[in-house]
Amino acid sequence: MENFTPIGALLGGLLIGLSAVIMLAVMGRIAGISGILGGMLTLKTPDRAWRLLFLFGLIVGAGLFAVLGGNVSEININPFEFSESTQTIMLVLGGLLVGFGTQMGSGCTSGHGVCGLGRFSRRSLVATVTFFGTAALVVAVIRLGTGG
């Protein structure tokens, strides 16, 4: 529990929620990252520009945090302490699964989680419980396997 950071977490969550409200109120769109990305991969989509700019905005926003003095030194993208080669394999496998699963299931943490739960959608509630449950199970199994 020594890593518990409820204030930053709550503040960040409020910003994410604010972004979702702006997207819905102004543009009538769900601020779901996988949905926004998926629309760009469909050839006939006429509205690529705003999707690309939203995704670019994510990078700018995260960069802004660092520029404003936010602490990014603790970011660790190898939490299971895999070896170099295993980590590369896991990153590629993880990316493929996350991409495939979010398109197949029509949403991710933002679309189903933040926006879907906010709309009281039954589909999003089931999806959110399912992906959180699966992820927790996978983490527990890896912990067993690595002896962590």
């Binding site: 994410i16 702006i22 945090f65």
Partner: peptide
């Protein structure tokens, strides 16, 4: 609007530790 919303979202992801 999409750019600004994206920036707010990205800032939130960073501030929150996500």
């Amino acid at each position: 609007v999409a750019l600004i919303s994206g920036i707010i979202f990205g800032l939130g992801l960073a501030v929150s530790g996500m």
